[in-house]
Design a protein around this nucleic acid. Structure first.
Lengths: 337, 337
DNA sequence: CATTGGCACTCGGACAATGTGAGTGCCAGC
DNA sequence: GCTGGCACTCACATTGTCCGAGTGCCAATG
C-alpha cells in the first residue's frame, strides 16, 4: 500500500519530467496528479526514493529527476505499452507497402520510425547468414576479372568483384556458374562452407586457383562480420533535444557513424523488446542515451534488428509501441516476399 | 597598389577569422601579419572594405568578420589551392584501394573525405543514366513474381521485384531473359527506352502484359529521378562547429537527410570545383553553410558528384584540395574497373 | 595625399551584489 | 502515518559597475 504510493510517485515524476524536461517538485506533483495526499507526504516518499537511488536532485533546492534506475523501474513495473492509434498503424502500413525493393524498404522504415518516435532510428538489413540463397550470378568482366552477384531470399543482393589468379574463358565461366548454382541454390548461407568444399575439390589444377579465389570471396561476402549493415536516420531529432546532451552531441553523432557501434546496439535482439537505459548501454559514448530495440524476421526466426536511440528521458511506452509496430510490419513484408 | 593592400587586408581577415573564429580587429591584424603599415591605416582600409560589403561588424566596438561576399572574393582572387601532403595522398590511395565493391568504395570515400576536411562529406553513386549495361538477370521468384537485377559498368547493381499481371513459366522467363540480354547488353541506360520498344512489340497478346510490366519496371529503375543516390558522412563534424550555426543545427541536419536536397547540392557538378558560399546556396536551410563540390567519372564524362558541406568560415584552400583529390582517386578507381 | 599617432567614444561581456522563489527537511500536532 | 507550518538553502535572474578592445575622426607629417 505504502509501497504502492511510492511507486505512483515515481511514475508521476517520470511522466512529468519526460513531458516538461524540468526537475519536478513535490508541490507541482500533487497539483498535476491526483495522488490523494499532501505535498509533505510526497516529500517524504521522495526522500525514500532518493535514498533508494530512483531519483536525484540536480542540486539542493531543486526538484527531482529520475535516475537511470528510476527509468528502469518505470519501464519494468510501472508503464504499460501505449497502443498506436489506428491512423498511425494505417500510416505505417501504407508507407511501407509502397517500397519497390529491399533498399527502399530499409530507407522507408528508418525514416518512418524516426518520424514516429521523433528520435534516431536504426534498421538492420536482414542478415545473410540467416538467409537462403535464391540465385548466384557470375559475370565475366574480363579474362581475369569476375563479378559475383548473390541474391538471398530476404531480398538482399550482394556483389563482389573478383580478380582471378589466371584467366578463364567464357566457357569456363559458364560451366563454373552452372555448377555453382546447382551447389548453393536454396542453401542457407551458413552452410556454404561445407557445400563448396567438394566443388573446389572437383576442379583440376588448371582452374583450381580461380575457383579457390571465387569461393573465398563468396564466403567472405557471407561472413557475418562483414555482411551486416545498419541504416540510420533522424539524426536531426538529436539536435532538437540538444539541451538533453548538455555538453555536446558530438560524441553521440560520432558513435552513431560507426557501423560497429550500431551493430552492437542491435546485436543481441530477440523477438522481445530490449530496453537499455543510460549507463546500461554497452557503448560508452551513448551512456547518456537509451536504446530501444527489437528483432524482426520471417516466421519465428529473427533475421535483423530495428530500434531507436534517444535521450534517457524519452517516452518509453510510446517508443516501445512504435518500434514494435515497425518490426511487425517489416516481418510481414519479409513474409510476403 | 593601394587596392592590393586592401585585398591583402581582406585575405588576412579571412585567414585569421577562419582560424580563430573570433572577430578580428585592426591591431591584432598588424601584429599577426607583416603588412608594413600601422593599425590606423588598416582601420581606414577596413572602413572601405566594409563599405564595399566584404566585411561586417557583429556589433560596434567589435572586430570585423568576412561576409559571404568577402569569402567569395577570397576564393576567387586571393587564395591558391593548398596542395596535399604526400602522406595525405598516400592515405587516400591506400584507403580507397582496399574497397571490395562499389558500396564499399562509396562508404570509404565518404568517411575519408569527412575525416580529411573535418566536415560533412557527400558522395554520389555513379549515375545509371551515364552507364552502360553489363548484365541483366531475371529470376523467377514464383509464378507471378520476378526479380530483376541490373548491373552497370560503373559497378552499380540495381534490383526490383516485379509482380506480373499473369503467370509465366520457367521457359517463358528463360526466353525473355535471353532476349532481354541480347537487346540491352552494352547499351547506354539512356538508350533503353528506344531499344526495348521493339522487344515489347515482338510479343503476342498472351505474354505481352508481363513484358510491358517488366519493361516499365526496368525503365523506372533507370529513370534519372529515381536512380540517384548520395551517401553522407561526418555529421558529427557539424556538432563540433556548433557555435557556427548559432541558433541551431537542427534544420541543417534535417536538410541533409533529404536525398532531394543532397542531389541539388551535387546536381550541377562538372569537372571543375564548384564553391557555393552561404546565401549563394540554393537550399534555404543551408544558407549558413558553404558547399564545395566537384564531379568524378571515367575519362572525360562526369558520372557523379562528390563534395562537402561546412560552415562558411571554412578552410577553403584545404577543403578544395581534399575534394579534388578524392574525386581524382574515385575517377581512377572507376577507370581501373 | 596617403600614412600615422593620438584621442575620445562606444559597447559587449565579465564580475559582483542583490533579491526572489521554488523546493527541501524537519517537527509538532492530529 | 499524514499533515500544515516554518526555517533554510541555493540556483537563477536582475541590476549595476567596470574594463578594455576596437572604432572613427582629426590634425600632424614626410
Amino acid at each position: 500500500m505504502l509501497e504502492d504510493r511510492r511507486l505512483a510517485v515515481l511514475r508521476a515524476i517520470v511522466e512529468d519530467y519526460v513531458s516538461t524536461r524540468e526537475p519536478v517538485g513535490s508541490k507541482a506533483l500533487v497539483e498535476r496528479h491526483s495522488l490523494g495526499v499532501s505535498s509533505a507526504t510526497v516529500r517524504n516518499d521522495m526522500a525514500v526514493l532518493e535514498e533508494e537511488g530512483y531519483i536525484a536532485q540536480p542540486h539542493t533546492s531543486a526538484g527531482r529527476i529520475p535516475t537511470d534506475l528510476g527509468y528502469r523501474a518505470f519501464v519494468d513495473r510501472l508503464s504499460g505499452v501505449k497502443p498506436l492509434s489506428s491512423a498511425e498503424r494505417r500510416a505505417i502500413s501504407d508507407f511501407l507497402a509502397g517500397a519497390v525493393d529491399l533498399d527502399d524498404v530499409m530507407s522507408r522504415s528508418v525514416r518512418l520510425l524516426a518520424q514516429l518516435t521523433r528520435q534516431v532510428a536504426l534498421v538492420q538489413y536482414p542478415s545473410l547468414v540467416q538467409s537462403t540463397i535464391l540465385h548466384v550470378e557470375l559475370i565475366r568482366l574480363s579474362n581475369t576479372r569476375l563479378l559475383l552477384v548473390l541474391i538471398a531470399d530476404t531480398g538482399r543482393v550482394e556483389q563482389r568483384a573478383i580478380d582471378l589468379p589466371t584467366s578463364m574463358s567464357e566457357d569456363d565461366v559458364a560451366l563454373l556458374r552452372a555448377r555453382l548454382l546447382s551447389t548453393v541454390l536454396g542453401e542457407k548461407c551458413s552452410e556454404l562452407a561445407g557445400r563448396l568444399a567438394p566443388l573446389v575439390d572437383s576442379y583440376d589444377a588448371a582452374l583450381r586457383p580461380c575457383v579457390v579465389t571465387l569461393v573465398a570471396s563468396l564466403l567472405e561476402a557471407t561472413a557475418d562480420t562483414v555482411e551486416q549493415r545498419v541504416v540510420l536516420g533522424g539524426t536531426a531529432n538529436l539536435a532538437r533535444n540538444r539541451d538533453a546532451f548538455a555538453i555536446s552531441l558530438e560524441p553521440v553523432l560520432e558513435a552513431l557513424e560507426e557501423q560497429v557501434v550500431l551493430l552492437r546496439l542491435l546485436g543481441e535482439v530477440s523477438g522481445d523488446v530490449t530496453v537499455r537505459i543510460g549507463h546500461e548501454n554497452p557503448v560508452e559514448d551513448l551512456q547518456a542515451t537509451s536504446v530501444i530495440a527489437t528483432g524482426y524476421g520471417r516466421g519465428d526466426s529473427v533475421v535483423a534488428g530495428v530500434g531507436v536511440v534517444g535521450p534517457t528521458h524519452m517516452d518509453y511506452p510510446g517508443t516501445i509501441a512504435s518500434v514494435t509496430a515497425v518490426a511487425q510490419y517489416l516481418s510481414r513484408i519479409l513474409d510476403e516476399h
